[in-house]
Amino acid sequence: MRTTEHLEDEIDAGSTASVYAAGALCWRVKKKKLEVLLIHRQRYDDWSWPKGKLDKGETLPECAVREVFEEVGLPITLGIPLPSIRYAVKPGVKEVHYWASSADDMPAIADGKEVDSVIWCSPNKARGLLSNPSDVEPLDALVAAYESESLSTWPLLIVRHAKAKPRAAWTRAEGERPLAATGKRQALYLQRLLMSWHPGRIYTSGWMRCISTISPYAQATKAKVKVVSWLTEADHKRHPAKVEAVVEKLLTRNSATALCTHRPVLPTVLATLAKRMPRDMADSLPLHDPHLAPGEVLLVHVSLADPGRIVALEQHKPFED
């Protein structure tokens, strides 16, 4: 299974693409047969996947969710990442990032502006209809995931708390050290980013900088927040096995969940996750200190068919001033 790391990094690093876009391959199973959603755009007279260009300040996951809703009216949640594609356009090179998204029986309706028709069809029919040959690559990955029972997943999001005030500048209790101004902006950024996966429950350290990091999202969505003392730096140092047990328990869930903790706790979290994934995927984990930057997210996709088995990874950079 493909791993996706630092999608936004590719933009920041000044890659050769001049246009970035994102979208989703919506899928469902009808009468035990896999079907995918194609759209027809009258402007180009082509068949493609729902997608669109990145708005200023928008993350790739946000863009994918927004574009699918605007074009076909589906309020999707992102599933596993699929291969991105690149092709020539007038400004230069366009790079499109895709995710799979289970649509179940939700109706898809063309917006009547960019899209004049939608169709659910088999992957084989989709291959024949797709106008851009490169659009077949994410389709092949989706079919392979379906056949290996790795397509139906739920997300576990590991969040390092946002940037806090420096330790040296704080004289009160360590657990009360608050977010810096940049950290507060990162928390608001995380509120938007996490909407792409809709975690309904958040497990967090009880220290102020973790609580403040997840508060904007929790307040906006009414997600349930559970404070876990073992996720603090101090309790982890005394009982790291307790953190391992927390992560192991989370992996038995089957609904979108987030965990917010501190840099010194991350090695235990990552080591526990590594046991539930193939070796090559484990090697791509951020194993070197600092593991994740303040406000950064590591997302693991956990199989529904094989509980606890991790089938895909992605990382998302924090907001930076």
Rank of each mutant, 00 (worst) to 15 (best):
H97C: 11
G295W: 02
A305D: 00
A274N: 11
A126E: 03
A108N: 10
A64K: 01
K30L: 13
D9E: 14
L287V: 10
A21D: 06
S196D: 05
G308K: 06
A169I: 11
A245Q: 15
K249E: 14
G92R: 02
V243G: 04
L193D: 02
L7Q: 04
R41S: 03
P91G: 09
T213L: 07
R127G: 00
K222R: 11
G183P: 02
M1P: 13
I310H: 05
S18W: 00
R2I: 14
L190G: 00
K163M: 04
A271H: 08
A245N: 12
R185V: 11
H161Q: 06
I39K: 02
R253H: 13
P278S: 06
K242G: 09
D306H: 05
A64H: 01
K32L: 11
P278V: 09
E35P: 00
T153P: 00
A100M: 02
K222F: 08
V228M: 15
H301V: 02
I310A: 05
T261Y: 07
V29P: 03
S284K: 12
D235P: 03
Q219I: 14
P107G: 13
I76Q: 01
G128E: 13
H291W: 07
E233N: 12
L313K: 01
S18T: 15
L299H: 07
K113G: 00
T4M: 06
E71L: 15
W154R: 07
P155H: 13
E114A: 09
H239Y: 10
E296C: 02
L313P: 01
A293V: 03
L188Q: 15
D321V: 02
A24C: 12
R177A: 02
L194D: 09
M106K: 15
S205Q: 11
T16M: 14
R201Q: 15
K56N: 06
L82G: 00
E233S: 14
K226P: 00
W99K: 01
S150E: 13
D116E: 10
Y203M: 14
R66F: 03
A256K: 07
A180N: 05
R279F: 04
R253Y: 15
H288Y: 06
W47T: 04
S150Q: 15
E5N: 05
H239G: 00
A21R: 07
L60Q: 03
I76F: 08
E248Q: 12
R172A: 14
K224D: 15
D9K: 08
V227C: 11
C260G: 05
A220S: 13
P199E: 10
A103F: 09
P61Q: 05
H40S: 07
K165N: 00
L60C: 03
V115G: 04
Y217W: 12
A126I: 05
C26T: 09
V297I: 10
K275Y: 10
C260D: 08
A100E: 05
V227K: 15
K125D: 12
A271L: 09
R160N: 04
V65S: 03
M208P: 00
N254M: 11
T268V: 11
L25W: 06
E35L: 12
K32V: 07
I80Y: 05
T16E: 14
L266I: 11
E114S: 08
S84K: 10
L188C: 12
H239M: 13
I119G: 01
F69A: 03
P264W: 05
A144C: 13
D306K: 07
A187M: 06
V227F: 08
I85H: 01
I119H: 06
P123G: 09
G112E: 09
K275I: 09
R172E: 14
D55G: 01
L25E: 09
L250M: 12
S196H: 01
